[in-house]
Write a protein that binds this DNA or RNA. Sequence first.
DNA 1: GATAAAGTTTACGTAAACGTAAAGTATTTT
DNA 2: AAAATACTTTACGTTTACGTAAACTTTATC
Lengths: 146, 146
Amino acid sequence: MSEKRTFSISELSQEFDVTTRSIRFYEDQGLLKPARRGQTRIFSTKDRVRLKLILRGKRMGFSLAETKELFDLWDETLTGNEKQLLKMLEILSDRRAQLEQQKNDIAQAEMEIDTAEARCRESLEELQKKKKQQVATPKESEQTAT
Amino acid sequence: MSEKRTFSISELSQEFDVTTRSIRFYEDQGLLKPARRGQTRIFSTKDRVRLKLILRGKRMGFSLAETKELFDLWDETLTGNEKQLLKMLEILSDRRAQLEQQKNDIAQAEMEIDTAEARCRESLEELQKKKKQQVATPKESEQTAT
DNA sequence: GATAAAGTTTACGTAAACGTAAAGTATTTT
DNA sequence: AAAATACTTTACGTTTACGTAAACTTTATC
């Protein structure tokens, strides 16, 4: 059984370090569907999971619309007509392709960071050498300063 | 020696499937610095590389401002004062951390896609079974339709 | 030399994703 | 019950990353 805890908007806000404004906006856009007690929002564990997915999506460069599309599709899929299931499989396969692309991008970026770092360290060493030389034969300005 | 070819705006536009408007915008924001022949832009291989980096950055969820920051910093670093070199190393290490985070995100997403796909396939099999049963004992509506 | 094709600047428009009041309600604390 | 705290809606403002149109110049083509 998936826990029956509930969360207030500020709890989620703090836990995920996102403003309440954003959370309300996500609801407004149909990504979250918290229950209400009076007019106060009550978030379920399902909402919490979705919020987590939204934020991860953002980190991965997905728009809210794209994430919503996935949510909606998944909900539809649960009602399980064959056409929808097949469409879902297609979408999933698209996502997988996107993820592959991103993995390539990341690998590339990592290599570039490697070489960039190497160059930085080389330059630093060069500077260190020059420093040592300066200590061995100090400049006039530094001698007179004494 | 890095090739001395040059490119027109439309060549780059086609190669990377991005509008000329976008390319001009990137220049406007200081991310590209094409030479000019009269008022026509002439892009170098360096510009081309940078465009590629911009687009990859976008796929990875980086804003133009973030990418520009990196470009600028790298340019500064080349002039090589020690403080800047150390700052660059810091930034690089930050990026590395970000990439790690993204790799985690991707791994998570892949797992979720795996389970989602599995569920889809299960549901599909269920439907197939029901279909077979229907063929064995067809519905009245389908009988009368003949 | 007209006309199309490719380039340019200028400038207003727009969608996404919130930020930021303003003004009100509900609940809890003192 | 007064004040503070947490929540709400409404609504206008802002930034980013371009789209789109207008009016103009330069270069290639017929």
